[in-house]
């Protein structure tokens, strides 16, 4: 299944560079000098415990939380503090933690709404990829299960040519069977788009990601290939609570 997301030129090198990003919310220092890179065509995982700043990092990249310092560049272009709609139009898709589907609209309407420029063929391919959604197209998204909503959220991000996909806790609250299906879908998506994945489920992240960063109290405390972190039991135990 191909979504034709990346151009050949974009399939190598660096897609996203977050450079010494700091974020305050009120008096609280949420992120402090967070630096990370997402390589083109790869899946990069952002790991850490609850409250470590993973979601804030994604929101800040997306322009939903203004940074207090640092820089975010996307394919060499400075997007620091740019409004969310501009960031999205550059080809960054965002799947938020709460799925972010429009519950009052049907699945079909959610997908159509997300597609800013008409591309029927792309829509068909996305629905083919997320085949479970096909019989649910006329159902209101508010009546779907968590797994189905997650699929709508990811499918919605893919109905436009997406160069970078930010996915926040896709497995959160899902049953093991739904997580398995989700892993298969994300593995497909990964073939076509650069993915920055925030995930608490270490095993899912290990399955999908090539490279990883670990955040703790708003700071980057670890960076390396996913395989190395899998082998580094001490770091896993210390920062992720996973043996």
């Amino acid at each position: 299944m191909t979504l034709g997301t990346m151009t050949a030129q974009e399939s190598t090198g660096q897609a996203l560079h977050v450079d010494h990003l700091s974020v305050y919310i009120g008096e609280l220092h949420i992120l402090e000098d967070v630096t990370l890179r997402a390589s083109r065509g790869r899946c990069t995982a952002l790991l850490g415990r609850n409250g470590s700043g993973k979601t804030t990092t994604l929101k800040s990249i997306m322009g939903l939380v203004p940074p207090a310092g640092g820089r975010v560049t996307f394919y060499g272009r400075d997007i620091t503090g740019r409004p969310a709609h501009e960031v999205a139009r550059l080809g960054i898709g965002y799947v938020p933690e709460d799925r972010g589907v429009f519950t009052g609209l049907t699945v079909r309407e959610n997908l159509l709404l997300a597609q800013r420029k008409r591309d029927d063929e792309r829509l068909r391919r996305v629905v083919r990829l997320f085949s479970e959604l096909d019989p649910l197209l006329d159902r209101r998204a508010g009546t779907l299960s968590g797994g189905e909503r997650q699929m709508v959220a990811i499918a919605r991000a893919l109905v436009n040519p997406v160069r970078l996909l930010l996915v926040d806790e896709p497995s959160k609250g899902l049953a093991p069977r739904a997580v398995r299906r989700l892993a298969e879908l994300l593995a497909e998506v990964k073939k076509e788009a650069t993915v920055l994945l925030v995930e608490q489920n270490f095993f899912l992240a290990a399955e999908l990601a090539d490279h990883c960063y670990v955040l703790d109290s708003g700071r980057t405390v670890y960076e390396g290939p996913m395989g190395e972190l899998e082998a580094d039991e001490e770091t896993r135990r210390k920062y992720l609570g996973v043996a």
């Binding site: 829509l123 096909d134 019989p135 649910l136 797994g147």
Partner: peptide, 29 residues
């Protein structure tokens, strides 16, 4: 958007329990 052509050859109306995930009791939100 794509207001005319079908998204899939046949886009049936949702029926109770349709689709593998629809009745997936474990996939609760």
């Amino acid at each position: 958007g794509p207001g005319g052509a079908p998204m899939t050859p046949a886009a049936p109306r949702a029926t109770p329990g349709a689709g593998p995930a629809a009745g997936d009791g474990g996939a609760g939100g």
